[in-house]
Nucleic acid binder design. Structure first.
Lengths: 201, 201
DNA sequence: TTTTGCAAACCAAACGGTCGGTTTTTTATA
DNA sequence: TATAAAAAACCGACCGTTTGGTTTGCAAAA
């Protein structure tokens, strides 16, 4: 693909993450890319269009887990795989975008909200991903029950939800309080606590 | 207090909730209030100032739980009280502001993020509230352990976190997926699942 | 007569976007 | 392989609109 075009996409993404869609001005985009407004509008019809492409090309894959990498036999392994895969995914997107940021920040959340607001397709994708996530967790819980890895009177789905909700709660909590570096650790301990409550002690 | 001034505050709040700080324009504010720009700037120095006052007077109390209303003896009661008090609080703010909205929406989150970004005092307040929340949960968990209401090898704090994180995860999850009406129900079942996992069955 | 409450006209700056034109690169042809 | 035509890449002045904010003036209350 064209070099300048890619440059615009890349620089725009950084700006969007930094400040959100509305707060980024054309001036800034043009300035960061080193191009002119004319050049920009040669490649894109509008600011909205860059945003949409940026979200589709970059952000979508950032939030899409590769479920095939997860263990399907042990809940304990599944949890570990989940965290590992997520870390890899985030790291990969950082490298790809040569972003110096060390972690997902509150700004990433803003951007996701912008995307949900502005792009119905993205919103739908997210909803489907969440359904899939719940399904896959429910499945591994069922397996773990059968294997006697855990035991509980709660339904598989309800247990799955506890794992998911805990991680999400930790997510916003750490991001809002700018303790991003603790996210993985915090999720790990939360999950292992849940696990020990479920395993027959 | 002056009538027009209050009117500006009230209408601005609704607009801020609907669209977020940046997206609300002066035009809209004066239009909704039925006043003129001159009138607005007679009472306020800037858009930022209204925002700050709106957050301080209305939003702060919306997010501040009245912990005295909670049971200090039984975890089960504490959970119920927590949900009931939260409902009351949200309802009260709705009545006060004659807001027709049925539930906290994604926009409320946006607004909170705006407030965190723009108002350091609000950010601090939130952080303190969260610390307090964790402390009070940890305490009730300790009590419940002593009472043999629950039993677990996990630390009180870790268990407290599970309850808190679950509710927060459910919060964003429901809000993003526009299933606001399920929040209370969802939290209830999540907590009761946690509870049953902790109580000696 | 002074202060309060407000309206309307007004302002500079910033916004996203356009447009006429120039330079650079690619392609076609002789 | 030289050259002309065409297309793609690019520039920056400019446009109309909207932004948050100001100024002026005036009617009514104090």
């Amino acid at each position: 693909m064209n070099d300048s075009r890619e440059r615009i996409l890349s620089k725009s993404l950084n700006l969007f993450i930094e400040k959100g869609f509305k707060e980024v001005t054309m001036q800034e985009i043009v300035q960061k890319t080193g191009l002119s407004k004319g050049a920009f509008y040669h490649y894109f019809n509008s600011k909205e269009q860059v945003f949409e492409e940026v979200i589709n090309h970059y952000y979508t894959e950032l939030i899409t887990p590769n479920y095939y990498a997860f263990s399907k036999k042990s809940l304990k392994d599944f949890c570990a795989d989940f965290l590992k895969e997520k870390k890899n995914r985030v790291d990969a997107s950082k490298i790809k975008n040569s972003n110096k940021e060390k972690a997902i920040t509150l700004h990433h959340y803003f951007l996701m909200f912008d995307a949900i607001k502005m792009l119905p397709a993205f919103k739908k994708l997210r909803e489907e991903l969440q359904k899939k996530e719940l399904a896959i967790w429910t499945n591994i819980i069922a397996v773990a029950k059968k294997n006697k890895e855990i035991k509980s009177t709660s339904s598989n789905k309800d247990i799955a939800k506890l794992f998911i909700y805990a991680s999400k709660g930790i997510g916003i909590h750490c991001i809002i309080n700018k303790t991003h570096n603790d996210i993985r650790k915090e999720i790990k301990t939360a999950w292992s606590n849940l696990y020990s409550m479920l395993s027959n002690k």
